[in-house]
Every structure is written in C-alpha cells, then in structure tokens.
C-alpha cells in the first residue's frame, strides 16, 4: 500500500483532509454529548465527596463536643447532688442537736420550776401552819384562860414553843 503512495497514480491527500475534518468533528461531537457533561459530573462528584468528607469531619467534631458537654454536665450534677445530700445531712445534724439541746434546756427549766414550786408550796404550807397554829393556840388559850392577852406577846411565846417543838421533833 505504501507503493501506492510512492509510485501510485495519485497521492490521495484528500484522505488526510478527510481525517482531519472527521477528527475535529468527532472531537466537537464528543465534547457536546459526552466530554462536557461527563467531566462536569465527575467534577461535581469529586466536589460532593470532598464536601461530604468535610461535613462528616465537622459533625464528628460536633458529636465529640456534645459528648464532652454531656459528660461535664453529668459530673456537675453528680457533685451537685453530693453537695445537696451533704447539706441535708449537716442540716439534719444541726437540727437534731438544736432539738436535743432545747429539750434538755426545757427539761432543766421545768425541773427548776418544779423545785421552786415545791419549795414555795412547802414554805407556804409551813407559814400557813404556823399562822394557823398561832391563831389556834390563841383561841385555845383565850378560851382556856378566858382572859385577854396581848396578841404579840402571846405570839412570841408560841413561836418559841413551836421552835422548841420542831427541835424536839427533829431529834
């Protein structure tokens, strides 16, 4: 076939032109139908993939942050709960002590009051008895002796008598 080129009747340069035109036309058609859209799609896909990778990284970081926040919040609430329990405990302790102290003080006061009352009663009873005895003895003496006596002299006399009686009673 090379011989045709060299010796042949006519060199078919037309083919050369034909192939160049065909090739350029083919390039144009491929560009319109396939190359343009397909490469654009490939580029879009590459962009999308890189975006996806970026956003995945982003959301991973967000999730990690969130976990940290949650953990911090959890630890915080735990310590808060601990504090609340501790406060309640100390409060309870204090109240218990206060109540006990108040009760003790009350008891003390009541005891003292009771003792005082008892003492008072005793004194009252004693002085009443003393007066009654004096009056009674005056009445008896006036009835017996039938004579007017000076109340004060008589009372001093009876007091000394009763004291003597008490001493006799104690011994």
């Amino acid at each position: 076939m090379l011989s045709h080129l060299v010796i042949g009747q006519a060199l078919y340069f037309g083919d050369s032109l034909f192939y160049i035109v065909t090739f350029l036309l083919l390039m144009w058609i491929i560009k319109i139908f396939a190359w343009g859209p397909v490469t654009k799609m490939m580029q879009d896909r590459a962009d999308k993939i890189s975006n996806d990778i970026d956003s995945a990284e982003q959301s991973r970081n967000d999730a990690a942050d969130l976990v940290q926040q949650r953990q911090a919040a959890l630890a915080n609430s735990r310590s808060e709960a601990q504090t609340i329990v501790n406060d309640a405990k100390t409060n309870g302790q204090q109240q218990r002590e206060q109540i006990v102290t108040a009760a003790q003080a009350d008891v003390q006061t009541m005891k003292q009051n009771a003792q005082k009352d008892i003492e008072q009663e005793r004194q009252d009873a004693l002085s009443n008895a003393r007066n009654d005895v004096a009056d009674l003895s005056i009445e008896i003496a006036s009835k017996i002796i039938q004579r007017e006596l000076k109340g004060d002299d008589q009372k001093a006399l009876i007091d000394s008598y009763i004291e003597g009686l008490g001493k006799q009673h104690e011994s």
């Binding site: 060199l11 078919y12 083919d15 032109l17 034909f18």
Partner: peptide, 11 residues
C-alpha cells in the same frame, strides 16, 4: 482531491 474509498468508508 483524490480520496481512497476504503479510507473514507472505514473512517
């Protein structure tokens, strides 16, 4: 221009 039929048809 001279064209070769074979080349044109195959092309």
């Amino acid at each position: 221009l001279t064209f070769s039929t074979a080349n044109v048809v195959s092309g």
